[in-house]
Amino acid sequence: MKILVGVKRVVDYNVRVQVKPDGSGVALDGVKMSVNPFDEIAVEEALRLREAGKATEVVVVSIGPVAAQEQLRTALAMGADRAILVESAEACQSLTVARVFAKLVEKEQAGLVILGKQAIDDDAGQTPQMLAALLGCAQASYASKVEVNDNSMRVTQEVDAGLQTIDVDLPAVISADLRLNEPRYVKLPDIMKAKKKPMDTLSLADLGVEPAAALKVVKTEAPAARGGGRKVASAEELVKELKNKGLL
């Protein structure tokens, strides 16, 4: 079984983004970019399935600018077999990304797709579910544990009420949650080896994908700041303050 895994280039987890004063977006010049953390977990899970003999090949896919090659190389250094960059200078939104993956699933005859449950830039959390809808297949979102049996998978999902377990037939789309695994560290020799692994570049047109109707972002602004707080000196003072506010 071949597994497709999505790898998005996003602003690093530890960066506190700044909104541009003209409201046109967030400042990205010179900001550290990384693999979306949920996608790193998705890559790790695919590698573990291959290492357990449940999959034969792990293909990582990024849809974005040429610079996303860097994130694909990271995934290759982790152990993915090959990479596909679907180059698009314009940022693609969830429905278009789902259409690209749907084409690639068909082209590659993939048996499983693992994506991060959300990207930490736009926080949309839509692509896995949209892809499953387009493929007419099962989705198992927010996975914290997966187990592959012959033609199905048992997936434990992190839901609001706790943990929910479902069975899904393959092919399926899994979305990775935080506690699915802890991604491996990449070692230097692996980085060298990754440089020789194959990476194809395609365009939306090569795949016959028309960009879908999208959300037009008309303004970006900083959130309303919370009023400055203060420190209190003791537990007594804290309780007094909270009682004064009617909170206790």
């Binding site: 939104q93 969830s94 429905l95 789902a98 926080d123 949309a124 959390g125 839509q126 692509t127 896995p128 579910q129 949209m130 892809l131 499953a132 809808a133 387009l134 989705q139 979102s141 927010y142 999902q157 992190e158 839901v159 609001d160 879908a212 109707a213 999208a214 959300l215």
Partner: peptide, 23 residues
């Protein structure tokens, strides 16, 4: 924006061929 809502709405949107607004 419960786990069920976030899991379901994108699937509905894709079946309808439209984008979705999260949160």
């Amino acid at each position: 924006n419960s786990s069920f809502g976030k899991d379901t709405l994108p699937r509905v949107a894709a079946l309808l061929g439209v984008p979705q607004v999260t949160d």
